[in-house]
Every structure is written in C-alpha cells, then in structure tokens.
C-alpha cells in the first residue's frame, strides 16, 4: 500500500469490566473502499465503530485514522451515523444543518439542501414534528453531506422500507470518492453485499476474516450472505 491506510487497528482491545467488547483487533483498511462490518449481535461491531468515532477509549492497543490517533483532529474527518437520532429535537432541520456547517468544515451545505429537497423534507420544520423515518433520513443526509475521509454507518438500513433502503444505498454509492472509505455495520448482508468492496467478519470481539467480496464469490461460488451463514452457524 503506497498511501497511509484510512483506518489502522493494532491489537485493539476494549473491555467493559469482565466483558470483552473487542479483543486484539488488528486490521488496516485502505481508502476508496466500501467495507462491510458483519457479525451477529453483540459481536463488537458497535464497539469498534464507537472507538473509531471517539466515543470510547481503548483499553489497550492502537487505533489510527488517516495516520492520526483518535481526537478532535480525526473527528473532523470522520462522519458517524449512529443507530439512534442524536439531534436536539427542538431544533429545526435548518437549525441542525447550520450546526453541522458551524462545526464541520467539510460539510457541503448545497449537497444537503439538494438531497433534502429531493426527499421533500421541509427544512423549516422542527425535528420533533417529523416522523421517525424522516428523522433518520435527515440524519443520513447530513452525515453523507460531509466530505469526510471515513464514514461510519451503524445499521443504516435496519428497519426501513425497501424504497428507502434503495435510496440509502444509492446515496452511499454516489457519495463514493477514492479518498474516503465507508464502513457499514449491519446484519442485513444480502441487502448490502452488492455495494461492498470488502468485508470484515467479527465475532466475540475478534476479527474472523477480512477479504474482498468478489474473491469469495469467485473462489467459493457463494454469495456473501450464504458464506456468512456458514461461518456463523449457530
């Protein structure tokens, strides 16, 4: 690899009391990829994402984003989509957009406005007046409107209707840039496998496998979904 990896973990471990969220996790992810973080519930997906987003501190090991340790500098190049709505719901959509623009230099306001318009979302309305699905769309639009180097999407398509899912995946694809990477954490593998370049299988906090999707298809003649089911058979 000639360039620095976008994300590099070396022996990353996170323990909560006696429970191991992540154990000796080591991987180097290059830029320009869409990578699936796949594993059963409680396997450590959210722990890894929170560590990268700066919401958790590692117990041991190292974590570098674009060559820098996690801190305010990495937070300005990492765009995080959590599983829950994280806005102050008394703000309007415009207000939240202004907030993003204020704090994130890489926020592309024009792009956000265009996407919100296409979705017919009235930006003057307050977040608390919007339905849950619309709130999630607003959050997705704002996260994807940042020209970040690393996007962390935690279960972006769980619990959405197929049309919305198509829209979300299409947004991720059209947002693609060779300078940035997207990590999608999900357990709905068959829905996303077409847009993934690579994938990480994670279980019980450990990295089971990191490989390219088409390699799996070529060498094993299986879809990623089927391969996952075999590897994680109960």
């Amino acid at each position: 690899m000639t360039e620095a990896p976008i994300l590099e973990c070396r022996g990353l471990t996170k323990t909560y009391g006696s429970h191991r969220g992540l154990e000796d996790f080591s991987v180097a992810l290059p830029a320009g990829r869409i990578i699936g973080l796949l594993g059963p519930n409680g396997s450590g997906k959210t722990t890894l994402i929170k560590l990268c987003a700066g919401l958790l501190r590692p117990t041991s090991g190292q974590l570098y984003i674009d060559g820098m340790p996690v801190g305010p500098d990495t937070k300005s190049i990492v765009s995080y989509l959590p599983e829950r709505i994280c806005f102050d719901v008394s703000m309007t959509v415009e207000g939240v957009m202004a907030y993003y623009k204020d704090f994130f230099a890489d926020f592309d306001e024009q792009r956000a406005k265009v996407m919100l318009e296409k979705l017919n979302i009235d930006t003057a309305r307050k977040i608390k007046e919007l339905s849950k699905g619309t709130r999630e769309k607003v959050q997705l639009v704002l996260v994807m409107s940042r020209r970040a180097k690393l996007y962390l999407l935690d279960e972006p398509i769980g619990g959405v209707d197929p049309a919305t899912r198509d829209y979300i995946l299409s947004t991720i694809i059209s947002n693609y840039s060779p300078d940035s990477s997207v990590i999608i954490s999900t357990h709905l593998i068959s829905d996303v496998e077409n847009i993934l370049d690579e994938f990480m299988f994670i279980n019980e906090g450990k990295l089971i496998l990191y490989n390219n999707c088409d390699n799996v298809r070529r060498e094993l003649g299986k879809s990623l979904d089927r391969f996952f089911r075999e590897v994680f058979r109960c």
Partner: peptide, 12 residues
Amino acid sequence: RDLAVKAAVNPN
C-alpha cells in the same frame, strides 16, 4: 459513478 448508482453496486 452513473452506472454504479443505476446498478446499485460499488463503483470499484
């Protein structure tokens, strides 16, 4: 990019 979006696959 256009083809990737239309086909809903990864640009790579």
